[in-house]
Design a binder for these strands. Sequence first.
DNA 1: GATGAGAATGTAATCGTTTACATTAGGTTT
DNA 2: AAACCTAATGTAAACGATTACATTCTCATC
Lengths: 341, 341
Amino acid sequence: MKRYSTLKDIANALNISTATVSRALADRCDVNQETKKLVQEEAKRQNYKPNPIALRLQNKRSKTIGLVVPEFKSSFFPMVIAGIQKVMDESGFQLLITESQESMEVERRNLKLLENNMVEGILISITREGENTNLYQELIDCGIPLVFFNRVSSKVIASKVVIDDYKRAFFATEHLIYSGFKKIYHFSGPEILMVSKERKKGFLDAMKKHHLEVTDKSVLTAGVFMDKGFSAMQLLIDKNDIPEAIFCFNDPTALGALKAIKEAGLKCPDDVALVGFSETEIAQLVDPLLTSVEQPTFEMGETAARLLLKQINQTPPPEVETVCLLAKLNIRKSSINTHKG
Amino acid sequence: MKRYSTLKDIANALNISTATVSRALADRCDVNQETKKLVQEEAKRQNYKPNPIALRLQNKRSKTIGLVVPEFKSSFFPMVIAGIQKVMDESGFQLLITESQESMEVERRNLKLLENNMVEGILISITREGENTNLYQELIDCGIPLVFFNRVSSKVIASKVVIDDYKRAFFATEHLIYSGFKKIYHFSGPEILMVSKERKKGFLDAMKKHHLEVTDKSVLTAGVFMDKGFSAMQLLIDKNDIPEAIFCFNDPTALGALKAIKEAGLKCPDDVALVGFSETEIAQLVDPLLTSVEQPTFEMGETAARLLLKQINQTPPPEVETVCLLAKLNIRKSSINTHKG
DNA sequence: GATGAGAATGTAATCGTTTACATTAGGTTT
DNA sequence: AAACCTAATGTAAACGATTACATTCTCATC
């Protein structure tokens, strides 16, 4: 590694002790003004920078926090990371990023890795396979605070950052209902995820409120990726059980459905209207433009990071809190009722 | 921070010196088998993990490398990061990620931040504003190896990972030519970027090879984002100077052009055929499906990381090398000549 | 002139680990 | 029995920074 200038180098150059140098650079009052000036000049001359590793050892703080995200492919998590990064840079913390690849096993490995690297806290969005509840609890119990975001644990007590999935799903469904659609289906996400449950509940409650029929067939589990939305839609087309509108778990499944619709020679929104969720860039690029719920991704990262820093820096640590961020429904062409009025 | 078990704790528990404990755990031959066993048991009992910070101070190595990417929005860089991450995890290095937000000024700040954090090397993809040549050179000169990827410096001598932009642009253009198009235009990227120049050169050379006319009007600078592709296409439509086909700098500009084509009531590929570059997820989702050059993003990250580790670990450092990764042209509907034979 | 106060600086321990060198005890060789 | 070897362990310095405590010196006070 590159050789850096140290306190000792400055001390030797000026024939004084490292203690004085340290004090001079910290601008302490019990150092002679002359000496202070000499030290500061010499430090500048040698381009001295305090060694962050030595400081960490001394302070017994790693000044590092860990992050576990399920994947990197979609732009959702990268945007969250950008938000986290901003807060970390401001507060002088380093960020250790790991990817669980939607696997509980890999997630466990990542958490162990972070623990071995002495992170002072962990930000995590869990896999869609499920949660490593015991491990989360262990980490918290032995003093490493966890903050969940987006995909949160339902069992562990910790600070969490979510968007109001239930409400947004409810409103998105109501939007379809107010548009005049009656036969409305839902493509739901992995049953194990809280967000899936919340969005499904929002859908069901909105339907119930408006006295619209909901049968076993109204909800299809379609996973998180495009191919699943595609095959779910194909299934409906094959069975000739085509709804007027579908509220989809997320944008990829909506886009998969859209592809199946087009391939079958049907039209969106004329034959089937679509609503996505968790706004992706693509929503504004496909034809027709996709109605979708926009999540404040960057802000989610910032918020989660701030909550974690609070847990780390305050003694005693503050009460855990769950922050619910506001999301916004962007209504576009894919959910316009072309038959009405 | 959480309290971790140390060598001293084990030494105290067994009434021996930390030196012996250290040696026992390193499984050195000059330790009594009995002692070794006792130490290993006690270490397990206390869940001892070596303190990585102390090791770094001791070894005078930060075991950290830095990364500077221009942005997080598109999935391109996140996928590269995933590749880098994989190599780093395997080799026990930490990764410090920074985002320059396409600003030279922010890039300078990030590089300084990485230097202060004593990274042992830096991976960088430069901004589209241009390059901080002097700073790159300074870092290299004082012992921090740099490896460029994707958007590389044209002036600094260092290892680089690129895709064969020139060849792919050449072939993509030839694909349009072989499809029977004659009036072919190019929407080029920011003039300052090497990749822009390379792709433009590939386009021009392919046209020249096949003796097709190239005028001042054949190449329009369209930037990197969708809106620029959109306005460039609108300009052509307004001037009623509509080419049969356009080879675009990247997918977003192609999609922008596509939007303008549709809004003008024209059809792709019937009226204007399109070819994009640097495959995005979107290419497979739009109508018509977009022909595009697919880049090996994950592999690019892996390769760049490996090159950097070589620079760091070998003494004397190996010669710098430029690795050119293969990219692949995915031919889809947007570039099919519907008039031909 | 002895005492004390206060300013400026130095000494040495600490953080957790490694390792060159020193020490000890026991056994073997002559 | 003196000399030496070997195995096993301990001591202490080092990495770079901070800081409690100790020291030195000067000057003011009685």
